[in-house]
């Protein structure tokens, strides 16, 4: 594990349904990130397939051992790579998945748990839900992955932080919405505030890797960023265009923050579990 280093965010514009072209770009950008000194590069949600795949799901779904996936995983030599695609399981269920590839191997897979199915989103129609948030060992220590909407549920980063993660990676396909008078999209402002709170509450590095490009008029805004554990933005990408973002990471900053503001230390898992049990046993909570 490295304490200090550099990570990259590959803010790419995927072509809808064209895995070969997207995989080519991933491999090219992995090399570019490594050449620029990064030890980890994070790609957006569904960067290999495009976001609104709808009935293309059946065509673009891949297993972990399919050739295109193996090729991208194989490119993770000298640099770790996080990338995302539609993963088909042995049972032929289709997941929005992110792979953490390291030394040419799959080190971890996260299947998106929270599938937005409301308003402009329709993921629950096509995809199966993942069922766990688990941290794992990466280049910069304990790491966790949250795919886009996963991060809009406060319990997701909470679980990963309790599982030891000090680096949260958030591959996303977030559309620009609610243009107002501000110099940022409404959805962009929300992401910045949300993840800044997480960085501070959990004393963790947070990486927001958002794609760019249009799909039938829906505009994915980019605006990727990296947050240090004190909530400072250490790198910010432009909007509406492809960009390779670089940020320094120093895990010792996590140590200092978690000593200075030991919120994680003071968490009470037993209390949370007991209260969850009580709520479930009583009125069943909001989902009764």
């Amino acid at each position: 594990m490295r304490e200090c280093g550099k990570l990259a965010v590959a803010q790419v514009r995927p072509a809808l349904g064209d895995i070969a072209q997207n995989a080519e770009k991933h491999i090219e950008w992995i090399t570019k990130a490594r050449d620029r000194g990064a030890q980890l590069v994070v790609f957006p949600e569904l960067g290999l397939t495009g976001y609104q795949v709808q009935d293309l799901t059946l065509e673009v779904a891949r297993r972990l051992n399919d050739p295109e996936i193996v090729r991208v995983v194989d490119a993770s030599r000298g640099i770790d790579a996080v990338f995302s695609f539609v993963e088909e399981s042995d049972e032929h269920l289709f997941y929005v998945a992110a792979v953490y590839a390291k030394d040419g191997e799959v080190a971890a897979v996260h299947r998106k748990v929270y599938l937005p199915t409301y308003g402009m989103f329709d993921e629950g129609r096509y995809f199966a839900r993942g069922n766990r948030f688990a941290a794992f060992s990466g280049r910069f220590g304990r790491t966790g992955m949250l795919i886009c909407e996963d991060a809009w549920h406060v319990t997701s980063p909470y679980l990963l932080a309790l599982d030891g993660a000090s680096l949260l990676l958030v591959p996303s396909s977030s559309p620009a919405r609610s243009v107002g008078e501000q110099d940022r999209f409404g959805s962009q402002s929300f992401w910045r505030q949300l993840l800044q709170v997480y960085a501070r509450l959990f004393g963790a590095y947070v990486v927001f890797a958002n794609r760019v490009g249009f799909e039938d008029g829906v505009n994915f805004f980019g605006g990727s960023f990296v947050l240090a554990p004190d909530g400072e933005f250490t790198a910010e990408g432009s909007v509406l265009e492809e960009a390779l973002l670089l940020a320094d990471v120093d895990i010792r900053a996590v140590r200092r923050i978690r000593y200075t503001t030991p919120l994680l230390r003071d968490e009470r898992m037993d209390l949370v579990r007991a209260e969850l049990d009580r709520i479930r046993a009583g009125n069943g909570g909001v989902q009764s």
Binding site: V179, G180, D183, N219
Partner: peptide, 12 residues
């Protein structure tokens, strides 16, 4: 509207 951001979006 923020006109710069909107124009950038619509031209893109």
């Amino acid at each position: 509207l923020n006109t710069d951001l909107t124009v950038a979006t619509l031209t893109a």
